[in-house]
Design a protein around this nucleic acid. Structure first.
Lengths: 196, 196
DNA sequence: GCCAGTACTCTACAGCTGTAGAAGGAGGAC
DNA sequence: GTCCTCCTTCTACAGCTGTAGAGTACTGGC
């Protein structure tokens, strides 16, 4: 993906996050990216190509980020929860748009099978979770990692969307991080059994 | 909401679930509902009205269903997990379209504040969860109910969308229900502390 | 029977969207 | 210099979408 295309794809991610899939048009991306009208249409000739480009970019960026985040998670359960909570909080603040776009694309992939590329990326955090659980002595990391991923996805989704999260602390604040830490700890405790 | 409008709204829900928000147009709903072209446009004059009608209908139907499901949950933790898992399994199979539409609308509400009505509904399961947790002797049902709801939402989302759920049993099968039961049990264990 | 009111259906049209291709221009090979 | 090539911008246009309003059928009241 050329630099120009990446810039357009980034603009497209912003558009999806702020206006939804419905607002994703060639012209809207042009406007967002501040390039002459027609540029996006030239680089991504069809709408399908545009969506695929955006998904590809999403995967590209998130893969790098997830790998970086996963590189040095502590194995001490307490510090682990704290560290994960920190990452989650980032995905709700700095990475808010990307996370929203990700959920929108996942929903889209339901009736657009060729987008499943993003799922390959979805598997990456799970692989990390699986390895982590195995290291922590889980009895069935395969299944348990699915539980952890579900919990994390639900947490992110609900908070970003505001559902089921009335009364929750605002992301980005210390209270939010404290609550997230507690939630992650509870999840690990539940998934791993009656440790800690 | 008149019967006619409800029928159109139901068709709209189907359209959103199968084609996404982008596919939701007056004419698509007409076609889906099998009514003469122009009908939807007459009952929901603007697109905004159409979306709101669909959300209202969603709330209407789900409220009834959630109340019914919540009416007789057993308080015995083991039977409770099983019973909840059964409901979740239904939301992934029979209620698949409604659940998908719900997530799409929640995402939409992000940039469309007047849709927050659906959030009021989102609060209903949480209220149930809160009551349940209180009955089970939770120490902070307010916060812990958020954790439970997040877990459930993530579970539903991931399974419906296929993300992070590769290798998961197909919804509707006994294996799926067994796994869900296990997952719910883990969640309760984690949230409630080191009981059971 | 006639009439008014309501529920429904049809049509028109402005504006937007997706897509293709033409026009313009920068840079490098020779 | 000239030519060719690639990158970029501009324009055209068919089809779709949102919306409004005109037309038509169907009800119950008299």
């Amino acid at each position: 993906m050329t630099e120009r295309m990446a810039a357009l794809a980034d603009a497209a991610i912003h558009v999806v996050a702020t206006k939804g899939m419905r607002g994703l048009t060639h012209r809207a991306v042009d406007a967002q990216a501040g390039v002459p009208m027609g540029s996006t249409s030239a680089y991504f000739r069809t709408r399908k190509a545009l969506v695929e480009g955006l998904v590809q970019r999403l995967v590209e960026v998130e893969t790098a980020e997830v790998d970086a985040a996963g590189a040095d998670v502590p194995l001490d359960p307490d510090r682990l929860a704290e560290s994960l909570a920190h990452v989650l909080d980032q995905w709700m603040t700095t990475g808010r748009e990307r996370t929203l776009a990700r959920y929108a694309c996942l929903l889209e992939a339901t009736h657009h099978p060729e987008l499943r590329g993003i799922l390959a990326h979805g598997e990456r955090p799970r692989a990390q979770a699986r390895a982590l659980l195995a290291a922590l002595g889980a009895e069935d990391p395969e299944r348990q990692s699915r539980e952890v991923v579900a919990f994390v996805d639900g947490l992110l989704f609900d908070r970003l969307v505001g559902a089921g999260a009335l009364g929750a602390p605002t992301p980005g604040t210390p209270e939010s991080r404290a609550e997230l830490t507690q939630a992650v700890r509870a999840a690990l405790r539940g998934v791993l059994g009656t440790h800690s």
